[in-house]
Structure formats: C-alpha cells, structure tokens
C-alpha cells in the first residue's frame, strides 16, 4: 500500500516535470534539480562512461543555468520561433527505494516548430531524493532510442 502511495507521488512528480518543460517554465524545471544534480543524455546506448565518452548533454546545475538562460534569450535562433512540445511520460516503474529512489520511465517528446514535427523517444532514469513534501532530482538520464544515430538540432530539454 505504501509503495503505491510512493508510486503515485513519483508519477505525479514526473508529470509535473514534463508539464514545466511543455509550458516553457525552464527556470522552474531547473529548480527540480538538487544542487548537485546532473542531467545526462548519453550519445550511445548502454553508455557508462561520462568522462571518456562524449554525451549529447552532460550538465550539472551550473551548466544547466546557462542552458536555461539561453532558452529565454530573445535571439536564441534555434528556439525562435519557439517550438511547441509534448513530453509524454509513461510506464513508470519504481526500481529501488532506499534513501534514494530510482525510477524508470518511457519518454516520447513530440516537438512542432515552423510546421515541422519531430519525435524523440527514450528510456528515462531518475534518481530522486525526498525533499519536503516532494523530491529533488539527483540524476536525470535519458537514453534516446535514436542514440548513435543522426540528429537535427535539439533545443528543448527532454
């Protein structure tokens, strides 16, 4: 019973996170990260090495601040006009629950910009830690099923 409550809370948290990205509230999205949180999109499936293998994104909060600041700059051309997105999060599975919670989920992100529609899909892994009546993100890792392939520019966080 207790784990169902936790599952519900975690699902709710992931849905809120997706909502912030879709609404373009990137500052508030960044607030979901712990101070030492990491956001990671590996370049290859099954990548384990952060330092010795290139990533699509590997950023801590200091770098994410730059990313988020750029997104609201009036001349950030790659997001002008700004895209409309849907981040669909589903198949949420609580993997381990200790003082850290590991959650796996599926992500489909559809982006429409200038009449062009793009879809990216991946397996997300969140490491969460309880914080007040919610959570903070210690690690968000998105393994795109397109990883290793060819990408158009990616601007909105996944």
């Amino acid at each position: 019973m207790e784990s169902l409550t936790l599952h519900h809370q975690v699902s709710n948290f992931l849905a809120q996170e997706a909502e912030l990205l879709d609404l373009g509230y990137f500052d508030r999205w960044l607030d979901l990260f712990a101070d030492d949180g990491i956001y990671w999109i590996p370049s290859a499936p099954d990548q384990t090495d952060m330092e010795g293998q290139v990533s699509i994104i590997l950023e801590d909060v200091a770098l994410l601040k730059l990313r988020v600041a750029r997104l609201s700059h009036p001349r950030a051309y790659s997001v002008t006009p700004s895209p409309a997105t849907i981040h669909l999060v589903s198949n949420i599975i609580l993997e381990t629950v200790t003082d850290k919670i590991t959650v796996r989920s599926k992500l489909i992100m559809n982006e429409v910009r200038d009449d062009i529609s793009t879809t990216l899909s991946g397996n997300s892994t969140h490491h969460l830690i309880a914080s007040g009546d919610s959570f903070k993100i210690l690690l968000k890792r998105v393994d795109l099923i397109q990883a290793g392939g060819t990408f158009n520019a990616i601007s909105i966080p996944l």
Partner: peptide
C-alpha cells in the same frame, strides 16, 4: 583526453548551446 571529449560535446552535439544556432542559420 577527457577535456577533448567535453570539447566535442560542446562543439558538435545536436544539443550544443552554440552549434544549434549555426545549424538553425
């Protein structure tokens, strides 16, 4: 080598905060 790896990500990633604007142009 790790610095070169970082450099690559910042320079050529599809999600590069720099290069994505070149690609857009």
């Amino acid at each position: 080598f790790h610095r070169a790896v970082r450099f690559l990500g910042t320079l050529v990633s599809p999600a590069s905060m720099i290069f994505s604007d070149d690609l857009e142009i």
